[in-house]
Nucleic acid binder design. Sequence first.
RNA 1: GCCCUCAUAGCUCAGCUGGAUAGAGCAACGGUUUUCUAAACCGUAGGCCGUAGGUUCGAGUCCUACUGGGGGUACCA
Length: 595
Amino acid sequence: MLEQELTKHISQAISTIFGAEVNGIKLESTSEDFEGDYTFVVFPYLKQSKKSPEQTAEAIGNYLMENCKLITCFNVVKGFLNLIISDSLYVDFLSQNFSNKTFGQNTHGKGHKVMVEYSSPNTNKPLHLGHVRNNLLGYSLAQIIKANGYEVTKVNLVNDRGIHICKSMLAWQLFGNGETPETNGIKGDKLVGKYYVEFDKAYKLEIEKLVAEGISEADAEKQAPLMKSAQEMLRHWEAGDAEVMRVWGMMNDWVYAGFAESYRRLGVDFDKYYYESKTYLLGKQYVQEGLAQGVFYQKDDSSVWIDLREYGLDEKIVQRSDGTSVYITQDIGTADMKYDDFGCEKSIYVVANEQDYHFKVLKLILQKMGKPYADGVFHFNYGMVDLPSGKMKSREGTVVDADDLMDEIIAEAKAKTAELGKTDGLEEVELQKLYNILGMGALKYYILKVDPQKRMLFNPAESIDLHGNTGPFIQYVYARIQSVLRASSLASTGEVPIAIMRSEATLQATEKELLVHLYNFPKTVDEAGKQFSPALVANYAYELARKFNRFYQECPILKAPEKEVMERRLAICHLTGNSIKIALDLLGINVPDRM
RNA sequence: GCCCUCAUAGCUCAGCUGGAUAGAGCAACGGUUUUCUAAACCGUAGGCCGUAGGUUCGAGUCCUACUGGGGGUACCA
């Protein structure tokens, strides 16, 4: 690697000139306002050099000029040594990689297994914008980790049991008149969601009535007949009551059919589904295990706890006094089950940051219990999604439905594409596919470009924008490149050999800038994997697209003055197109051949 | 109460492990098309990086306090 080569020479320079051994040399890319490709800051080494910043930088620069062929030139501004890398390095890089279909991918994860759990919906209502962020992040994360060589298993832990499902079931039994997705043509998850809302409405009326009768609100919430019936139903469910199980199975199947459709449109998938109905009883054996290890302790009322105060946390309950287990205990069981099934050394949970505390506790418990996979548990915590009107609240009907969202954004892509009228001659099927690629590209990019850790604002008007820092902007560059390649009579696959480029060629400034950025692609994929950040890939792709547009504006490709220059620029097109395709694929975004 | 997290242009966001004069997009204004796709490019304008201290050659970035937003926490998931 170039950077390693440079840092090696710099530390040699320092030891030769100043007689000081240093390591941990840091290099950064030169700010756009100065001439150069890499910058070495000499301030930290003035003690060794015993000279002024300028003299120190000058001396190192001269040494590098003599000893490192990669550097053609340097300049010094205060304590900053700006190094200019020879064009030939980038031309060589170009000729070696322009047709490399796996460019940007790394292999250091080879032989290591990682699990990514994401999506994890409840089966009582349809997916909304919050789930969309989760799904897109989870999928992209898995893609990025794969691109670094790891073997990835994607799993979905479905919350298919509990009081919330009973509410939908009960409302359907009471008010549904036997309505089904088939009889009404409603998507299954939407239908079940509708009855969840019905329940809430009827329940509220009951509460109002009880309050009017002089009962306190808190008591009314507990005493309302509907709530009692729902709890009753949950007990029947736990007892395995045949009729309750039948309705439960039927309604969950409706929901799964609906989810499958939404997942398909989102372009996300899973290698394995886990269901809480099958895991919720796990946990008791772990309570015993923890007690035996002395990790847990029992109170007089027989509830079981763990004391995490030495870690700045509190005491946490792991089993209630009535002997039933709590959520975190189930999670211990599920974690064990996953490890038995796949043996992943690293297990990533894509769950919103409202559960930070929960996962901190889970990891600590697993560590104290000495689980072999405990250190590999990682909570990928992302921020909530807000709307311009404020927080999304399902009770107040302010949620943005995932299916509606996709419909709207694809319709917008269609309207815009039709308006521009560049798609003459495409079949209707092709057109639909294109609208889908563009609409989903806009949506996915809009969500993935922001740092996952941060709470984000979803502005519907902005999300359907197709100009500027958007998915379609990047897709447009890809389509442009394909157009040039088609016109070039060279196959766009990159398999047709292009004359070996002469490495002594001189590059235009925009060409070099683009190549430097392309050179950094593998490093970016690596960094995104380490930081678990699809946003890094998104920002990289955007920057790449911008740099290409600048290059495209300034440098004629097919009409280049010389054949050699044309071929070099075609190779740049290949490499840029490939890189965009790969980068967007890491975000789950497709690319169109024309638009 | 305690804990976690965030605060950068009018708006939405970048700013890599501390480095030079803090960058994009949107919105506003102006320019570019007989030439490879104008979903583009170029330019103008817009900032006490929440406030106050501290660490150091150097702080948007690290530490402390405060203010403001969000989240969590006391046998819910």
